[in-house]
Simulated assay, not measured.
Amino acid sequence: MDWDDLRIFLAVARADSLSGAGRRLGIDASTVGRRVARLEQGLGAKLFLKTPQGYALAPEGERLLPHAEAMELASAGAEEALTGPGDLIGQLRIGAPDGCANYLLPQVCARMAESHPGLEIQIVALPRVFNLSRREADMAVAVSQPQAGRLVVQRLTDYRLHLAGHEDYLRAHPPIRGLADLRGHRMIGYIADMIFDRELDYLAETGADWAQLTSNSVSVQMQAIRAGAGLGIVHDFAIPFCPGVRRILTDRLSLTRSFWLIRHQDDRRSQRMNRLADVLAQGIRAEVARLQAQLSP
């Protein structure tokens, strides 16, 4: 069985489409389709079912999937064994919630790229949980520890969040001396039915019943606060990027959350992936500490 054909099979299984697989592999969709058809003909089995949503694995494809993944891991291991540890090269796709992706990963990945010129880093910012079994990312940063799946989970660091507003808004509205005073202010937060992780449900901590301006993106929320639209709970590490935004009621309301690094269990056997995980973890810890240290007590 040709490993190159199985590589294409894996790309289609993970992308759910010929075009998506083609983009990942750098070839056109028609070539992907021909290679899949050739593999199916050679095996005498239908590997995919075409659905309105794209290409879904047929039962035969489901049975082939773990064997193809094992060959992928063996191929990567063979390459590592021949080339030795050396420099970190190749592609690394990191999935992260948009707060981490916008305010932490650009600096962390810039330093990684500087230290490892042969590394191609992709940052995928999505307000949802990543599916590593479908290889949507090589590793992902999450805001809570997953409880199921064939995953390696590593605690990265704690980070702090506080209530904040722009100084222009705070000057133009009644003073805020306690949580009860928030009732007369506009609140900014997450769209309630789009909160993908319970750790992001901050609004109840303020005692507010609802938020007047909401978004599924923490970065959009921060820009709304910066524009003077109201008050919201924000990451301390994001405040240095937003001149004029300052924390309030820090002695009354302070939240602590954690970042977790999540990888596919099979990647533990890859020296390269272990090294990349270590570099990324160290970088995120250092960047959170650096940014939070810039805030006055």
Rank of each mutant, 00 (worst) to 15 (best):
S217I: 04
E40R: 05
L213M: 12
T206V: 10
S19P: 00
L49G: 01
P243T: 08
R160V: 09
K46R: 15
A76Y: 00
M112Y: 09
A277N: 08
A70S: 14
I8Y: 01
R160I: 05
S115E: 15
Q221H: 11
N216A: 15
P52D: 03
R246T: 12
V36P: 01
R38T: 12
M194I: 00
E80S: 03
A281T: 13
I284F: 06
R93N: 06
R198M: 02
L203T: 01
Q223M: 11
D201V: 01
I121P: 06
A164P: 06
M194V: 01
P174F: 02
P127G: 05
L49M: 08
L200A: 04
S258D: 07
T83K: 13
L151Y: 13
A58M: 12
S219G: 05
C242Y: 15
E79V: 10
E136H: 13
L47T: 01
V108S: 04
R34G: 09
M222F: 00
D209M: 10
L255Q: 10
L249W: 07
L295K: 02
S19G: 11
L73D: 13
P175R: 07
A180T: 13
G95W: 11
H185F: 09
D4I: 07
D168Q: 13
G149A: 08
A238I: 04
I27M: 15
A78G: 15
L92I: 06
L126G: 09
A113W: 02
K46N: 08
L64D: 13
G26L: 08
V32A: 11
M187C: 06
Q41W: 02
G61V: 13
A148W: 05
A78R: 14
D236A: 12
A76H: 07
E205D: 10
L170V: 08
E136A: 12
F48T: 11
